[in-house]
């Protein structure tokens, strides 16, 4: 086990941000950490890396529960920050050299690691370019290189692909997989479900400061596979009585979206006929689609569809 959070409670004044978090990170895993805005993902990362103190519980890093944040443990952690945190006035090579020096690399080893890190993120040809002249994608890749230069055992990536082009994003995801194959353990937070589906060996979903579920992507999908999602396209959506559909047993959610009615029911409820009958009383049916759940469905089912910042759908 590389790292663990045991019974972690974190408050900011009276606001409870992390509520008894228990999380184990095992060697060689890629853990996808998901959660809506304000769930506590960034706070969890800050507690895991020692940037924040915890009110209760303890953090263990590399088997060290007494002084987890001493330098010898910090040397083994890399953090890819959500904001680009490189020096714009330094070249790519100088940026990597700076962080290599900070992590104790010297001489030939430093030169070698800097070259490797920059090549790994596809910046081998731009080592002499100043970071301020790079595109957004290149800056993000340099941001990652600076976190990899010291060959960390645990790499924490906080939304590393925000706002970048598809090529750069793809490159980053491939790089993450390569890192895992070399033995690096990765904690990866993102809002993009498809990224987690593509790379994560385990998914942890955080909401309102609590871990509401964890497991592999398949395990999580199977847990809600007891649900069916039926999309019905109708000709007169304003005429359709949603209440009548909602009143059916085993119907969990009914949402109108333009001229589509989305109905979430228990699996094998056998309500398709009755649903169609209700709809046809008020409107014509243009098309029907029954969807298999994916990670996004798991996420939305567990965390709800309501906006977290005071809005409503």
């Amino acid at each position: 086990m590389i790292a663990s959070l045991n019974g972690i409670v974190k408050r900011y004044d009276s606001k409870l941000v992390l509520d008894y978090i228990d999380l184990e990170i095992n060697e060689g895993q890629i853990i996808g950490l998901l959660g809506p805005n304000g769930a506590g993902k960034s706070t969890l990362i800050r507690c895991l890396t020692g940037m924040e103190t915890v009110n209760q519980g303890n953090v263990t890093l590399f088997g060290d529960g007494k002084k987890p944040f001493q330098n010898k443990n910090k040397e083994k952690i890399g953090l890819v920050t959500q904001e680009i945190s490189i020096f714009p006035e330094l070249t790519a090579k100088e940026n990597a050299n700076f962080f290599a020096g900070v992590y104790g690399l010297k001489g030939e080893e430093r030169k070698r690691r800097v070259a490797e890190a920059l090549a790994f993120v596809g910046l081998a040809e731009q080592t002499k370019g100043k970071a301020q002249n790079f595109s957004g994608g290149m800056q993000r890749r340099l941001n990652i290189a600076c976190s990899l230069v010291h060959n960390p055992k645990l790499l924490i990536m906080d939304e590393p692909t925000v706002g970048i082009d598809t090529q750069s994003r793809n490159h980053i995801l491939q790089a993450v997989k390569q890192l895992q194959s070399k033995g690096t353990t990765i904690l990866y937070t993102t809002h993009y479900m498809e990224e987690v589906e593509a790379i994560a060996s385990e998914v942890v979903i955080l909401d309102k400061g609590q871990i509401i579920t964890k497991g592999t992507v398949q395990e999580l999908i199977q847990n809600i596979q007891h649900e069916e999602k039926i999309k019905v396209e109708v000709s007169h959506p304003e005429e359709v009585s949603l209440a009548n559909i909602q009143a059916l047993p085993d119907v969990k959610q009914v949402i109108k979206d333009g001229n589509q009615i989305l109905i979430v029911t228990s699996a094998n409820s056998g309500h398709l006929d009755r649903i169609l009958t209700i709809i046809k009383e008020d409107s014509g049916v243009v098309g029907i689609n029954v969807e298999k759940p994916n990670l996004e469905d798991v996420f939305l089912t567990l965390t709800g569809r309501t906006l977290r910042d005071g809005g409503s759908v």
Binding site: M51, I77, T81, S85, V102
Partner: peptide, 13 residues
Amino acid sequence: FSARRQRILVAPM
């Protein structure tokens, strides 16, 4: 006191 603070805090120095 900016975005770079996190990276400096996590660094072993």
